[in-house]
């Protein structure tokens, strides 16, 4: 006993030796990565010297903002963006519910189906909405259809993951009671699972709508319709006063959507 006690280290360390070695390795790796990035990244010095003048020029050209363009160029695009985000979210929630049911291990008792559903959730999420929009523009041509599908498909991953987690956390009591009463599968879903996952379901849908408003405002840059198209048109022609207008409108709807969703969530959940 005494030998063991004296063998204990005199100095107290918060972390074990292996932890400290791992952490030092991590710091070293991080430092190497940063130095490598700074040394090798391509930065053109002339551009950097020019930056303050260009930034001043940018704001000078944006002012005064071309408010008169709103009626002819922005209003329709704004409506299109709002519908793209909403329709995309509805479609996403529908598709995500199906995938979430397949991914939830307590509803679908098949490892193969679970794995396929989980792969769909990961793959749709890691490809950005704008990249999906590029795909759908190539398939369906430019316009709101491509944007809506891009929003819907990209949102499946996020929405479906949260929904499947909510379904898996459902209590088994009501499910067993319904099963014992001889309820059909559909009745069990409607009367056993739905009341339990409803708050999570609505919360996720509202949260995703908020995100999709932001996303759908920029999809037009690659041809997905909406405000991004107006932004692209203004940028192409170097009408910076119109760019300023679109940016203000985007800022406005993002803030409005955030206020609306905060209010809705406090009402519903």
């Amino acid at each position: 006993m005494t030998a063991a006690a004296s063998a204990l280290p005199r100095r107290w360390h918060r972390f074990s030796l292996s932890e400290r070695i791992l952490r030092s390795c991590f710091y070293l790796l991080a430092a190497v990565a940063v130095i490598w990035s700074i040394k090798t990244i391509e930065i053109i010095p002339e551009f950097l010297q020019d930056a303050p003048a260009q930034t001043a020029d940018l704001f000078a050209r944006m002012w005064p903002i071309d408010w008169s363009w709103y009626k002819s160029g922005v209003h329709a695009a704004l409506i299109e963006t709002l519908h793209t985000a909403t329709l995309g979210t509805i479609l996403a929630v529908l598709l995500a519910s199906l995938v979430a049911l397949l991914a939830a291990r307590n509803v679908t008792r098949s490892v193969i189906l679970n794995t396929i559903a989980r792969f769909i959730l990961v793959a749709t999420r890691s490809v950005h909405a704008m990249v999906w929009a590029l795909f759908f523009v190539a398939v369906f041509g430019p316009g709101a259809l491509a944007g809506t599908l891009a929003i819907a498909v990209h949102s499946i991953g996020f929405t479906g993951k949260l929904l499947s987690e909510a379904i898996e956390e459902a209590k088994t009591g009501p499910i067993e009671a319904l099963t014992a009463a001889g309820a059909t599968k559909l009745s069990i879903l409607a009367k056993g699972y739905w009341p339990q996952v409803k708050p999570a379901f609505l919360g996720v849908a509202i949260f995703r709508w908020d995100i999709n408003i932001r996303e759908s405002a920029v999809l037009g840059l690659v041809g997905g319709g909406g405000l991004g198209m107006a932004l692209e048109a203004a940028l192409e022609n170097l009408y910076w006063d119109r760019v300023g207008l679109v940016l203000i409108i985007i800022f406005g709807i993002v803030i409005a959507a955030e206020i609306l969703t905060t209010w809705l969530r406090s009402r519903i959940i």
Binding site: I41, E42, I43, I44, F47, L48, D50, A51, Q54, T55, L58, M130, R214, E215, A217, V218, L221, L231, L235, L247, I250, F251, V254, I255, E258
Partner: peptide, 28 residues
């Protein structure tokens, strides 16, 4: 912070491309 958060990275990138030119610096 609210102002910074409300702009999508793509919109920020457009503004920085104008300010510092095409390339990685604008992205960073």
């Amino acid at each position: 912070i609210a102002l910074l958060r409300s702009f999508h990275p793509v919109i920020l990138a457009i503004l920085f491309v104008k300010a510092v030119g095409f390339g990685a610096l604008a992205g960073v």
